[in-house]
């Protein structure tokens, strides 16, 4: 538990409140006044109680530049997801199973836990790679078709396009 200043607490509170309110609207899927009032009260209490628990991002996350980067990340990610599925389809359907698996490692420049989680999840869903473990700043990746065992080359091959955008968001 770290000690947070008042400004940090306030920004965490607002981020949690907005996020939980979006989840509430998605669950009830209605814009009736009574639903919105009850939802606002409930999510306010919950986000006050969880100020110290969810410290993923400050209030700066709502700035237009960062939202643009998030949308860009989503597009890059969706393209990679579709590519990886084509890759899986090609491997699974070909009779000889063209695989050459192994585990490689690389280091990342990301520092916060949440950005590392997003990067690990994205790597799992991109072509032919699966995150086995994350220790501090080292990622261990199971690669279905190993092209190189050198950490730097593996980094440029697997994670560079995601990390560039994530460094701008977090």
């Amino acid at each position: 538990m770290q000690n947070l200043s008042l400004a940090n607490k306030l920004s965490n509170f607002i981020v949690n409140w907005v996020f939980l309110m979006l989840v509430w609207i998605a669950f009830t899927s209605s814009f009736a006044t009574q639903e919105l009032i009850i939802g606002a009260l409930t999510t306010m209490v919950i986000s006050y109680l969880s100020i110290r628990l969810f410290t993923c991002c400050t209030i700066l996350i709502f700035s237009p530049v960062k939202i643009m980067y998030m949308i860009w990340y989503l597009i890059v990610f969706l393209i990679a997801l579709i590519n990886s599925n084509m890759d899986v389809a090609r491997r699974v359907l070909s009779p000889s199973l063209p695989i050459n698996p192994g585990i490689v490692k690389f280091k990342t420049k990301l520092t916060t836990n949440y950005s590392k989680m997003v990067l690990a999840n994205s790597i799992t869903l991109t072509p032919g790679t699966l995150t086995v473990d994350v220790v501090d700043d080292t990622f261990y990746i199971h690669w279905i078709d190993v092209k190189t065992t050198n950490p730097e080359e593996a980094f440029t091959e697997i994670a560079e396009s995601f990390e560039k955008i994530l460094l701008k968001i977090f």
Binding site: L81, P101, T124
Partner: peptide, 12 residues
Amino acid sequence: YNRLQAGTKATT
């Protein structure tokens, strides 16, 4: 590990 790869990506 290879099963996990194929299973996770395709089913997601």
